[in-house]
Nucleic acid binder design. Structure first.
Lengths: 152, 152
DNA sequence: CTCAAGTGGTTGCAGATGTAACTGTCCATT
DNA sequence: AATGGACAGTTACATCTGCAACCACTTGAG
């Protein structure tokens, strides 16, 4: 019956994720009144350009309702605009407005700064090990990106 | 302006934490209708014995309202009992009931099984690197456990 | 002894979340 | 054409969460 929460991997991983995310989230929360789903959607659109809501969800691992709400919030901030697809009217294409792209640019700077800070804190070795560990998790546990209907 | 969410450390860490936690959480959710705060409180009490709510919070990194609600839930399940402190009536001591200890024992088995599974999936190397990375984060970013009022 | 400040714990409230159900649209089969 | 299933996206609802305010109690300064 020897068990300690403090050494339990899921717990440690959650705690570490919170520690690392919170400090960055504090910035976009304070500066831009942005939530995490909004930041993720903004980041996806900023780096890939025009996307659909479903694609944003796949790219940033968010549930479609989260994406839907984030998109609406960004739209209300006038950082994103929707446009219809002429071939398939279920789809809507999403794209950052010039204002949205400006915010994205500022956020990218903040993100790089933050990664630099982290690298300094963790040291080259710590960072490398962390990334290797994360890569192992991603390789073994990530939901395989939707397959194109193989045989079955 | 090169930035990809998929390589951003806070994002990767969150995703990894979710991947690793969800599979374990699914077990106690399904088997015992337990939430994560309840599991953490149960684990703290199970491994350390009698504690106060504040101590549980410190040990499992939970906000005091989360602890308060988790404690009430465990009490309603009859897995925990409160008792008063004779010297300081603000404090309540919390302790698992025999039923609570039984559940804790079962959970410890599940937790060990899960860690074994993870170790198998990640491989010895991956696991070791991950733990080293987490240790670096904990060392540099964790909120230092409340100090005993040094000079200042 | 008294009173202000601090502490342990609870609760009201507003915001965030996932599930499931829904709308509107497309497409394959008939 | 008609229809049933699949899909994009939205919404209603129940639950969870953190913050701030709160209550009861303790402590220390005067």
């Amino acid at each position: 019956m020897d068990f300690k929460l403090e050494t339990f991997l899921p717990y440690r991983l959650n705690l570490a994720a919170e520690l690392v995310s919170q400090r960055f989230a504090a910035q976009y929360r304070a500066r831009y009144r942005m939530t995490r789903p909004e930041w993720r959607a903004l980041a996806a659109l900023g780096s890939y350009g025009r996307m659909t809501a479903t694609e944003i969800g796949a790219n940033s691992s968010m549930h479609k309702t989260k994406v839907s709400r984030a998109v609406r919030a960004l739209e209300e901030k006038r950082w994103l605009k929707r446009s219809e697809d002429l071939d398939d009217r279920r789809i809507e294409h999403l794209e950052l407005t010039p204002a949205g792209r400006r915010i994205y640019g500022e956020m990218v700077v903040l993100a790089h700064d933050y990664e630099r800070d982290l690298a300094g804190l963790l040291g080259a070795g710590g960072l490398r090990q962390l990334e290797a560990g994360l890569a192992a998790i991603e390789a073994k546990l990530a939901v395989p990106a939707r397959r194109r209907a193989p045989k079955d």
